[in-house]
Amino acid sequence: MTSKKQLFVWILPFLVLILLFFIVPLLYMVISSFSNGHGFTLDHYQEVLTSSYILQGFKNSITLSAVSAVIALIVTLFAVYAMMRFSEPVRERILMISNLTSNFSGIPLAFAFIVLLGNSGLFTLLFEKWGIDSLTSFSLYSWGGLLLVYIYFQLPLSLMLLYPIYYGIQQQWKDAAALLGASTFHFWRKIGVPIMLPGIVGTFSVLFANAMGAYASAYALTGSNYNLVAIRIGALISGDIFAQPELASAIAVLLGVTMIIAMLLSEWSIKKTRRNL
């Protein structure tokens, strides 16, 4: 019993940290979203739900996040499969390099895409030189441009999350399946993919959440011009003249609820696929 109490001492600092820097701030945010300075109000939520501008921001964020997550997931699924033929040290080196590119997000990433595709970017000039008009009209500072940037920061994360899942597929299983007469395709269809499916769904949810909360690259590229939820919140909490922290809190609470729903959905599908195995 004493040993259990001693063990609890190791958990205590963790609980204090979570309380001070996570639970308390979130509670204050929720309270603030229902407050108008003197008492309780639902005004901020009413404003959010009736403002087509803020609702548009939600729609933009959700589409951008889902599309970027799906594309990154598809690319890395095949890429990791191709990668598995290398020896383990080589694979680890590739992962290390990919880890390095995961530092490349936010402001630096936005800047890199400006160098490539900005108004006088490398590719922009190339397209002009070759006279490819359909590509010349492409604007980095639009939905399409943001999508390219979002896919970029999803890729290393997706690779890192999928690699261990592939790694879990044991060579013995492949050998056993092959001995019993299964082709490579059969193995993946009947054994490999079903085993990996929960992991893939989990990875999607992580990628989706990752993009929903992303702020820095969109902010660096479009300032406060492109309408995303995260950008709206930032503008409302930090605006010097037009700061509306209560409204920002209400949007932040709703963004949080959206993300929790996404997370729960993925948890549910993981459980469901596991039961089907």
């Binding site: 979570i18 820097f21 996570f22 308390v24 701030p25 979130l26 509670l27 204050y28 945010m29 309270i31 603030s32 992580v206 959440a209 990752n210 929903m212 909360g213 992303a214 702020y215 995260a230 919140i233 930032g234 909490i237 922290p245 920002a248 809190s249 932040a252 963004l255 949080g256 993300m259 929790i260 996404a262 997370m263 948890e267």
Partner: peptide, 21 residues
Amino acid sequence: AVVMVYAFPGVILAVGLIRAY
């Protein structure tokens, strides 16, 4: 807690920290 930390990214936490502290 891990899922919650994921669900509440920097921009949400920033609002909370400003309101609380």
